[in-house]
C-alpha cells in the first residue's frame, strides 16, 4: 500500500519455531499444496502469511487453511528458476522448516459494499482461508491459463455469488466450458462488472494488481481496494 503501509501497526508475530512437512499433493503440473502440522501456539487471521526458512533462503506464503485447522496448508506454484518453490516441490514428508509469522494485513473487512475478489494463479490462496471461515456472497474472478487451474472450484462455487474463471491462455478458440470468461481478470472488470462501488481484493501478479487499481480508479471510484502482490 505504498508509503502508508510503512507506518501502519504491523500485527506481526516474529517468533520462530519448527514445522514439519506432512504431505504434498499436486493440483496441476506445476502447482501443488503442502501441509504442515500447525504448531499449537500459531494463530493467524485468514489472509495472513507464514514465512518459511531453509538455510539462507526464506519465502512468505499465504495460508489456505482456516484458523483452528490442525494443519497449515499452502498452495504453491513452482516458479522457473525459483529456489524455494522447487525445494518445497521436491522435499520428502518429514522435512523440517523454520517458520516465522504470521504477517500481513490482507484480511477481509466486512462492509455494506459487495466484495469482488480478484486473483491470478495461486493468488487465490488467501481467499480459500477466508471462505473456510464463512465468507460468502462474493464475486470471485480467478485469472488462470487453462481450466486445469480451476483447482478450488468446488470450494468456491457454493459460497460465491459469482465465480468466474478468467482464462487468458486459450488463444482465439472458444473455451471448452461456457462457465468461464475468455480473457484476463482485468478484461472482465472493464467489460462485464457493472459500474458501482465495491470492495476489491486483489491478489497475485503485480501487473494485474496495477492494471486493476487503474480500472478501479477510473470506473469504480467510490470503491475500496485491498491488495497483496505475489510476484
Amino acid at each position: 500500500m505504498e508509503e502508508v503501509s510503512h507506518m501502519s501497526t504491523p500485527p506481526t508475530d516474529t517468533r520462530k519455531g519448527t514445522i514439519t512437512l506432512e504431505s504434498r499433493r499436486f493440483l496441476t503440473e506445476d502447482t501443488f499444496e503442502v501441509s504442515f502440522r500447525c504448531p499449537p501456539d500459531f494463530q493467524f487471521v485468514p489472509g495472513q502469511r507464514i514465512r518459511l526458512h531453509q538455510g539462507q533462503l526464506s519465502r512468505e506464503y499465504s495460508i489456505i487453511s482456516a484458523p483452528g485447522d490442525p494443519h497449515i496448508r499452502l498452495c504453491i506454484r513452482m516458479i522457473k528458476g525459483g529456489r524455494f518453490s522447487v525445494l518445497l516441490a521436491a522435499v520428502q514428508p518429514g522435512a523440517r522448516f523454520l517458520y516465522s509469522g504470521p504477517t500481513g494485513h490482507f484480511v477481509f473487512q466486512p462492509s455494506p459494499r459487495s466484495p469482488v475478489l480478484v486473483a491470478t494463479g495461486t493468488g487465490i490462496a488467501p481467499y480459500l482461508s477466508m471462505v473456510s471461515t464463512g465468507l460468502k456472497d462474493f464475486t470471485l474472478l480467478h485469472g488462470i491459463r487453462d481450466e486445469l487451474e480451476t483447482y478450488y472450484r468446488d470450494r468456491f462455487e457454493p459460497a460465491a455469488r459469482l465465480y468466474v474463471p478468467c482464462i487468458s491462455g486459450k488463444g482465439p478458440e472458444e473455451p471448452a466450458s461456457l462457465e468461464v470468461f475468455p480473457g484476463r481478470v482485468t478484461d472482465y472488470l472493464e467489460q462485464r462488472l457493472p459500474l458501482g462501488a465495491y470492495d476489491f481484493y486483489l491478489c497475485g501478479r503485480r501487473e494485474m494488481v496495477q492494471d486493476a487499481v487503474r480500472l478501479v480508479d477510473a470506473r469504480f471510484s467510490d470503491s475500496r481496494v485491498f491488495m497483496e502482490i505475489f510476484y
Partner: peptide, 8 residues
C-alpha cells in the same frame, strides 16, 4: 494511494 481501510 490506498488508505489502510481500502479507500483510494
Amino acid at each position: 494511494s490506498s488508505l489502510f481501510s481500502g479507500e483510494r
